[in-house]
């Protein structure tokens, strides 16, 4: 049963393990329905500082300051907020060459039928317009793509996005 959970869904433990593997110190975030399952685990993790924002554009400039000071932030927001953050991403992340992963809840994403939610329709177009690389993760089997995003951000000194195409399905049973 557990194998089913770990192979067909994206578990919060997997995402947290990736954060720890890549030395994330701060998660700058605004909750959303695709990544809300991370909250309890992140809150309990002593190596992480959670920095809550009230509008996603602030996450870009806070992350820029953290990175300038030698820390390793991760931005955790929804695609709706990603689009709201356009000028901040341009000026504070791309403009200052900030290597940071944006973990973006992909609201409206589906592999089946026609995508109805314009939040999903425009997400990839938005990232392409800013020339920001992105990697879709839908299950634990995609965990290595999160590593690829971290490595690419460091190598290129640019923001790289991880699009989370899955919602909460419950924590793994220990």
């Amino acid at each position: 049963m557990n194998d089913m959970v770990t192979t067909q869904h994206l578990s919060p433990e997997t995402v947290l393990a990736q954060m720890k593997k890549h030395g994330v110190t701060h998660v700058v975030w605004l909750p959303d329905s695709e990544t809300n399952w991370l909250y309890l685990l992140m809150q309990a993790e002593p190596t992480l500082t959670l920095v809550a924002v009230s509008r996603e554009g602030l996450a870009a400039s806070i992350a820029a300051g953290l990175a300038a000071g030698g820390k390793k932030p991760l931005i955790l927001i929804q695609n709706t907020g990603l689009m709201e953050s356009g000028d901040s991403i341009r000026g504070w992340l791309l403009g200052l060459n900030i290597p940071v992963v944006l973990m973006v809840g992909l609201r409206g994403w589906t592999r089946h039928g026609v995508t109805q939610d314009t939040a999903a329709v425009y997400t990839e177009r938005f990232l392409n317009a800013f020339n920001i690389s992105y990697y879709l993760v839908e299950s634990d089997a995609d965990a290595s793509r999160i590593s690829v995003a971290f490595e690419e951000a460091e190598k290129t000194n640019r923001p790289v996005a991880v699009l989370v195409g899955d919602e909460y399905h419950g924590f793994m049973t220990k």
Binding site: H26, T49, V51, S61, I62, A64, G65, L66, A68, G69
Partner: peptide
């Protein structure tokens, strides 16, 4: 926000 991030880092 930038200066706040810098302050948290240092």
């Amino acid at each position: 926000a930038f200066a706040f991030g810098l302050a948290m880092a240092l």
